[in-house]
Write a protein that binds this DNA or RNA. Sequence first.
DNA 1: ATAAAGCCTCCAGTAATGGGAGAGTCAAGT
DNA 2: ACTTGACTCTCCCATTACTGGAGGCTTTAT
Lengths: 274, 274
Amino acid sequence: MLKIGDFPKLARVSVKALRYYDEIGLLKPVSVDQFTGYRYYSTSQLPRLTRIIALKDMGLSLEEIARLLEEDVSISHILDLLHIKQGEIKERLEEESLRLTRVEEWLKQVEKEGKMPDYEIVLKKAPPQKVVSVRATLPSYGDTGTLFSKLAPYIFEVGGQMIGPPLEIIYDEEFKEKDVDVEVAFPVAANVPAKGEFKCYDLKGYDHMATTVHKGSYDTISAAYNALMRWIEVNGYQVAGPSREIYFTDPNAGVPPSEYVTEVQVPVEKVKGK
Amino acid sequence: MLKIGDFPKLARVSVKALRYYDEIGLLKPVSVDQFTGYRYYSTSQLPRLTRIIALKDMGLSLEEIARLLEEDVSISHILDLLHIKQGEIKERLEEESLRLTRVEEWLKQVEKEGKMPDYEIVLKKAPPQKVVSVRATLPSYGDTGTLFSKLAPYIFEVGGQMIGPPLEIIYDEEFKEKDVDVEVAFPVAANVPAKGEFKCYDLKGYDHMATTVHKGSYDTISAAYNALMRWIEVNGYQVAGPSREIYFTDPNAGVPPSEYVTEVQVPVEKVKGK
DNA sequence: ATAAAGCCTCCAGTAATGGGAGAGTCAAGT
DNA sequence: ACTTGACTCTCCCATTACTGGAGGCTTTAT
């Protein structure tokens, strides 16, 4: 008979762990002194214990181990569980290596720029949404304000209900200083009559949008695009449609431009042939 | 101003998580209604939130993130933390791939043999220990009993104090049926006079011993050796000394041979040139 | 006989939430 | 003005596989 403290000498377990295994019924001592409560084990329990440890080292939970060590467990059951575990481990491996690349990417940037990266890129889904919009070719980006100030009153006039922040869709494939082709839109709850240049339709959704949040004046928003484009290239994506900007800050709210918050979205797809 | 439920629409985060971040001071709402307790956030907190999520995705704990987002944290501090994280992730990657090979090895065995493996192999350290022993060439393994029955009374006679189960060291490099060169030993607490064939010395320790536990009659112990040798080959080790057997069961205790428990140990070293 | 070491139970804590109870609040529609 | 339904609040419990510690017996060694 062994006392609980003898086991740690034979296998890589702690006394605390053994007490816990007793509690959950995974490995019960062969006898327990009914007066002192002392647990007594037998060397013949050593194989079971080493098996428990081996399975634990494979990443199985104690509950799963308990199930596997039941007397009447079938082979196919064991194989099933192991296959599932195999899948889980592979998943975790991928997750970790993704993590590693993310950390290394950050590390590179911090080392190069001497500060924290300004933009975090998030891949998200953009569901389709009903919008009221107006599209036009404007002399410059600074003029989109005029579109908004035409669009908003129109929506109000026809009783449309805005259900989200306004957005802008930039159709130019390359960056242009002048004569920019943009669409300005408001998400709305229900259809609204179109009139002249004002359209109402279901704005296309995308499964993969690379997005980032820009804080500050619109003048500096190209930095957000730079960060996005870099991310897209590094991660093996390519641009798959016109980009969007979502304006979380109402310019009439008296907030200084340095506090403006804008989300920039670029639809992307994995580069094939790689 | 955003209510707590508006944030999950902008970032991949749950309401519960936001409340927790508030509690631990990682991301506090810009205002809290002092009567209703409602939390109100601002879109300008979005960059901080996305940064939190980005760092979380890299495997940093919330506490580490909080430290990184302090105002006055230095670049070298950031770099240090990231380097540490990088190391941790690499470690975990290795751990997981070790796990994967273990699971796959099991899977192979279970598929081939239609049952759970009989032996778990554990790599452990064997510290040097003082022993009293007798070495002899015996006609067969069945005769080691005679050595024990000479050795035990001698130790008793000279007042030696046994501090562990008896062991046997097998010196033959290859398996032999007859004329086996074995040493039988008892760990003792302190030096004991040697006499004739009875020696007392410090038995060599090994840093790496591949070990397994055999339950059953000694007749079937070769299965344990087979399992060990297979493991040694599969895992890129080679035998580095004479193997040992440790007898946990006292044959005089009235236990049937099918319940005998023996640990088999083989010193190993990594195969070089690979 | 005494001291040291070992054992017992019970409690608290871990990391980052998720689930749910019970109660209060808000916004929209009648 | 009222009702409904969607939100929100706090508080508590649960998760995993233990570790650490307090306070109190029991065993072993000297």
